[in-house]
Design a protein around this nucleic acid. Structure first.
Length: 109
DNA sequence: GTGCTGACAAACG
DNA sequence: CCGTTTGCCAGCA
């Protein structure tokens, strides 16, 4: 069995991602830290990757700490995430955006 | 158990 | 600013 702990861990990550307000983004490491799981940045990526297709989670608001999308540039996934974020008002310049401007801090809406 | 992988991140040069 | 190295950790073969 997949241990109850890992299940709750995933749910805490889902909850945290769910709280990211529209038009803002958060890094994998930041999500992990907020979910009280420092060091689990890569695991956050894994959790999002294995989300069920019908999930309503705003996975596209999770990006890397360098202010860019973690999918390989040019892939369908990269383009999808980029267009959704642009639709929420985020401006890309050479594949990057300002974390200082769009970064989310727990507590703000 | 062992070794490799990855939607990461920070430190180097 | 960019490519590389190192640290990280659960999943999976």
């Amino acid at each position: 069995m997949k241990s109850d702990r890992s299940i709750q861990t995933k749910e805490r990550i889902w909850q945290t991602v769910h709280q990211i307000p529209r038009g803002k983004v958060a890094s994998y490491g930041q999500i992990a830290k907020m979910a009280n799981l420092p060091g689990y940045a890569r695991y956050v990526g894994y959790v999002l990757k294995t989300l069920p297709g019908d999930s309503k989670l705003p996975w596209y608001r999770v990006v890397n700490s360098q202010g860019s999308i973690s999918f390989k540039k040019g892939t369908q996934q990269y383009l999808l995430q980029k267009s959704i974020l642009e639709g929420e008002g985020i401006v890309f310049i050479n594949g990057k955006f300002s974390m200082r401007e769009y970064g989310w801090h727990h507590g703000e809406v």
